[in-house]
Nucleic acid binder design. Structure first.
Lengths: 186, 186
DNA sequence: GCCCCTCAGTACGGCAGCGTATGGATACGG
DNA sequence: CCGTATCCATACGCTGCCGTACTGAGGGGC
């Protein structure tokens, strides 16, 4: 997967752009800065993209493609909805600890950009739909399922917020238990 | 409260800076752009601040001062913890609808800046403490109260997140009911 | 082996924003 | 009415970044 040849592809640029977004937002996506980190000059960039805007659009498209339904496939394979939900929660709570820079959170600062809005909206929608149908499988009526999914997903997002802005991380097991107790229907 | 005199104060600049942060992040805080929106030139700015950094620091300090414990005073006055929690939830769910730009969310995009980290951390800590003690008053043991407060606050943050990136707003009453059912201890 | 296409280097123009210098205007206390 | 401090305008240099033009080097199909 690693491109050891000195030649770069367009994907190398979109990947670098996403990394830049993850820890600096759209403002951190600059042609010349990226070229420096990639070890080339911007002459290379303009062989792959027409301008900076095109790179941003490509990077965002890449992102929501991998974080929409694609990223949910693993869990969609779990037949039992209760277990599916439990594994989702624990996975989220566990993955939340490290200060792994998150594209999703960084994009909040640029949520006025229509392309960003579109991308974030797609990802959120896919996840909300997934959670909603899971709750429906658990027997909740449609509207209740939708609301519960919404609050549950909101909690997931919020936990990531908190994890990114705090140094002390509370015990993950206890938190997972608390989350499970709250979001698994009685 | 409105300063109709043509002369500006330092507070006018910090307020403008916060507004800029709310819908563009730190990157949107520029001396010359702000001067344009305020109808003056940057000559005015450098009469109040030594540089752009000082403005940002002042604006952030202003923000967490008003959104930390100060903003919670209104609810701290409610004696009954159950009612306090309910009013908090409904107020949050209600205030979430409009696309009122949120400083808090925008700051997440710049969470790598140490000053931003500090400010956001202070506000979150104050709110978490408040929620935790409320849950304790409701009879939960300390560790459970802390975890429950954490998840509840996370849900609040996440709901704001969702409200900002979606066009369709689900019925606020239903959502408030769902949230209350979830976060008010049985 | 030759050509062509892709990737990369160099150089230039342009623009926006930061910071400084300086002087003018306005308010206010004495 | 005068002096001083505060607020504001103008002009300038500087830096970082975008975008374009042109050139060069290397590899694969024929």
């Amino acid at each position: 997967m690693v491109n050891d040849s000195p030649r770069l592809s367009a994907q190398d640029w979109t990947r670098a752009a996403l990394k830049a977004i993850a820890d600096g937002g759209l403002a951190a996506v600059g042609v010349e800065p990226l070229a420096r980190t990639l070890g080339v000059t911007k002459g290379s960039f303009y062989a792959h993209f027409r301008n900076r805007d095109e790179l941003i659009t490509a990077a965002l498209a890449d992102w929501w493609r991998n974080h929409g339904e694609a990223g949910l496939a693993e869990y969609a394979a779990i037949a039992d909805p209760g277990q599916r939900l439990r594994e989702l929660l624990t996975a989220v709570v566990r993955s939340v600890q490290p200060l792994a820079p998150s594209v999703h959170l960084s994009l909040l600062g640029d949520r006025n950009d229509p392309r960003v809005k579109e991308a974030v909206s797609r990802v959120n929608q896919a996840r909300l739909n997934f959670l909603t149908s899971t709750y429906r499988e658990l027997g909740l009526p449609p509207d209740q399922a939708a609301n519960r999914a919404r609050v549950a997903y909101a909690a997931i997002l919020g936990l990531q917020h908190l994890a990114q802005t705090e140094s002390d991380s509370p015990s993950p097991e206890a938190l997972a238990d608390a989350a499970a107790a709250i979001f698994l229907p009685s």
